[in-house]
Design a protein around this nucleic acid. Structure first.
Lengths: 128, 128
DNA sequence: CTTGACCATCACATTTATGTGAACGTTTGA
DNA sequence: TCAAACGTTCACATAAATGTGATGGTCAAG
């Protein structure tokens, strides 16, 4: 498929898809006319990239950990250097910390919301 | 305490503390000389802000949800408008989605790492 | 009183992830 | 063949979170 199609399927603008390419996150083939050619797997790949970006990882890190995450499963193996593994581990730990912070804050929000709901339920006029 | 002290305690640069103020996230008092005066609770507050920023929330959202999270607990009440509550709920949901993405990716990383470790353990020469 | 460690404001720089538009080639269908 | 829809590159713009430096006020200790 070409860039417009992939854009539609992933929700990423064409511009953004070119940006991801510029950052080395995706490397589409080129047709004879110079058009980018993407195969189906790019849909998942782009979605995963967007998820990681949304999660706050910068592209330069994503670039390094992506190869570990999108191998067709079951074909993973040591083209991974020790440095890469160390990076991956440290990035995973950072991710874990971040997840904890997020969970704590989400729970605080939830708690506050249910609390307010409870108060509302007791308010005068609420039975109207 | 003044800005330098707070900076030391939180790890946020002075510049950043002024930025948070500019964004309306914190509102320190001013001494007679114009110096910012922070009381102890700002340490927690700033740390929470940094956590939320690191979690990917933009300052304009943080500004809206902070009042819900840092009230001295047990004194929460309906100075909250319905719009604010709706915003808070939607932001909580967005946070939940984000958390899910993060967890999935972290687990994938972990899985990959343990897998590689397992392979390494079986490699020739590993018993050296 | 001066020096050094603070504080203040203002302004300009940078990085990252995006948007927008110009200028121009390609493909496709009426 | 002509227009619409799509592709290309290049370049400039922006918002967010920070850094950096200029210029100057305040204050405590020597």
């Amino acid at each position: 498929m070409r860039i417009g199609e992939l854009s539609r399927l992933t929700g990423a603008s064409r511009r953004l898809l070119r940006y991801y390419e510029e950052q080395g996150l995706i490397v589409p083939d080129r047709g004879a006319n110079g058009y980018r050619e993407y195969d189906d797997r790019y849909v998942d790949r782009v979605n995963q990239i967007r998820g990681l970006l949304d999660a706050g990882l910068p592209t330069r890190i994503i670039k390094q950990i992506l190869p570990c995450l999108d191998k067709p499963r079951s074909i993973h193996f040591p083209d991974a250097t020790p440095e890469m593994l160390a990076l991956l581990a440290s990035e995973r730990d950072r991710l874990t910390e971040r997840i904890d912070v997020l969970i704590r804050n989400r729970d605080a929000m939830s708690e506050y919301l249910t609390e307010v709901a409870r108060c509302r339920a007791l308010e005068p006029g609420s039975s109207h």
